[in-house]
Structure formats: C-alpha cells, structure tokens
C-alpha cells in the first residue's frame, strides 16, 4: 500500500467520523388550533354536563380547543354578559353562547362584530336576530308534550305550567307550544302558569301552596327537568301527571317509577356535539343555515326500554 493512498484513506475515514458528530437534526413543529369560547347558562345539571362533554368530544375530533364559562345559576344575566365579554377581550376565535336573556341583545354582540369574532347560540336562541341557533324546536316540544299530557289525562281536567325564566326563549316557546295545543282540547283547562324556576327547585312550601290552591290539577308541564324532579318528589303518590324536557338519567329513572309521565329527550351531548361541528364547518367557510333544529322524541314508559337499548347501541357505536 502506498503511503499516499493510506493517508487519503485515513482522511476519508476521519471526515466520515466527524461529520457523524456534527450533524444534528432540527425539529420545528407549530400548531394553531382555533379556540371556541363557550358560555353556558349553568353547570350543575346533568344536561349541561353532557353538553360540555359533547362539545369537548367534537372539539377533540375536529382539532379545536374549548374554553368554558358559566354563571352560577340561570338568573345571573350580568355575570353571563361579562363572562362573554372577557372571552372576547381575550381574543377567542368563536363565541358560542346559550343566553339567559333571549329578548335583549347584549353589548358584547356588537363588540364581537367589531372584533369580527363570529357568535352563535345553542340550546337557547337570541330572538329577533340573525345569530345562528343550534338546538331543538322548543315550540314543537311544548306542543308534543301537551298532546302527550292530554292523552294521559284522558283529555279532561285541570293542567298547570311551571316554567323556567321566561326571559329565555326556550322556556317561553315551550309554554307557547304547550298552550297552542291545549287550545285544541275543549275539556282541559290550564289553571296556572308559574315561572322563574329554572335550575332552582321549587321550594316545598310553594309546592304545598300550589297543591292547596289548585287541588283539581291532574297534569303539570315543567319546562325544565330539574324543576320537574323537585315537584315529582313533593307530590309523589298522587295521580298528577308530569311532563318535562331534557333527557337525563334521573328523569328516565323517574319515568320508570311512574313519577314522571313523559319527557322530551333534549340530549345535551348531541346539542354540544352538533354545535362544535357547526362551528367547524363555519370556520371552513361553508354556507350554513342559521337554524339547526335537532329532532326530539317523546319518551314515556311505553317506549322507555326500546329507547334505552337504542341509545346504548348508539353509545357503543
């Protein structure tokens, strides 16, 4: 072997070895996921919990992030407005609200417009605005529940309504729908409409007073499940039929135990999921309808088992 050849060979080997030491790979990974600011009405019922989980599930699937805010109860309008405002100030990408007051347009809607942040509503809509709405058709739900209650009352006797805050279009529309149906029933009289009980249960005293004032009442329509459960507990053992909205486990149990006559299955999970999906499509620039009405089923003891097995299958899928 020539010395020169040897030296060359050694040099090549050394070059190879040293390039091995100096070459370092670089990483660079960036991610910008859109953030959805969400303001709900409250957090304490199963309905809202399942709604939040539906939203989170969809956001995970679609690569978005969520920030939730919620006032303590469905009566704190100012707090809700401020929460929405603080989300806007912190520059979230989309604002989704379930308004406590459907009939006054809050300031933050204007603020959002200025900041070009899209706003949509879910569960409850802003009446008289073009803000998109995702939820159930509350009038239809009221109407259908009226029909079911009338059937169970055998189309005669007194009925009463215990509604949530009527500033919320959802509760008002449910009552409207219920009343519209009841007008078709000649032998049923709507004896009273109590309002303002959303997530706060009616106090024992009030229920007793109601029982005393309206002893002939055979059917009650409660616009929210929590109220309905409260009343059901108080008047257990009487033949008063109760119908209500919101699908949740304890209501279904109550149906099974004959404490509640019927429920319209407003699924929080589905509303949450559909809302985030709607937002995703909106951010992709798709043309969308301003109202997305989700179908509702009336569940009574007759179809309860069937419904449960179907929803379990859906869950498993």
């Amino acid at each position: 072997m020539d010395k020169k050849v040897l030296i060359k060979f050694v040099l090549i080997v050394l070059c190879f070895l040293f390039t091995g030491c100096t070459n370092k790979q670089n990483y660079n990974y960036k991610n910008n996921k859109p953030v959805i600011g969400i303001v709900t009405k409250s957090t304490d019922s199963e309905y809202w919990m399942s709604l939040v989980s539906g939203m989170n599930m969809a956001a995970d699937e679609l690569g978005m992030k969520t920030v939730f805010f919620s006032p303590e109860s469905e009566s704190e309008k100012e707090v809700q407005d401020r929460l929405a405002e603080s989300l806007l100030v912190n520059k979230i990408d989309v604002l989704a609200v379930s308004p406590i007051d459907s009939y006054s347009e809050p300031d933050y809607i204007n603020q959002a417009k200025k900041m070009t942040i899209p706003v949509i509503s879910f569960d409850t809509c802003f009446e008289g605005t073009k803000i998109p709405y995702i939820g159930i058709d509350n009038k239809l739900v009221g109407y259908e529940l009226g029909k079911e209650l009338a059937k169970q009352m055998e189309h005669k006797g007194q009925a009463g309504i215990i509604a949530g805050d009527l500033r919320q279009s959802g509760h008002r529309q449910r009552v409207d729908g219920f009343m519209r149906y009841m007008k078709t029933e000649k032998n049923i009289e709507v004896a009273f409409i109590e309002s303002g009980y959303a997530n706060l249960q009616m106090s024992e005293k009030k229920v007793r007073k109601m029982k005393k004032n309206y002893p002939m009442v055979k059917g009650i329509f409660a616009t929210s499940a929590v109220t309905a459960l409260g009343i059901a507990q108080e008047i257990d053992g009487t033949k008063v039929k109760i119908v209500t909205v919101d699908e949740q486990k304890d209501v279904l149990d109550a149906i099974e135990q004959n404490k509640i006559a019927a429920v319209a299955n407003q699924s929080g999970y589905r509303i949450g999921y559909e809302t985030v999906q709607y937002i995703h499509q909106m951010l992709e620039g798709k043309e969308l309808e301003t109202k997305v009405l989700l179908s509702v089923q009336i569940i009574t003891k007759d179809n309860l088992l069937n419904y449960m097995s179907n929803s379990r299958e859906e869950y498993l899928q």
């Binding site: 660079n28 960036k30 910008n32 953030v35």
Partner: peptide
C-alpha cells in the same frame, strides 16, 4: 409564534 410551537436548533 402561534399557540404551540416546538422547535430546536443545534
């Protein structure tokens, strides 16, 4: 930059 950024130099 952005919301998440993972990177490296030498």
């Amino acid at each position: 930059q952005g919301q998440e950024n993972v990177g490296s130099d030498s």
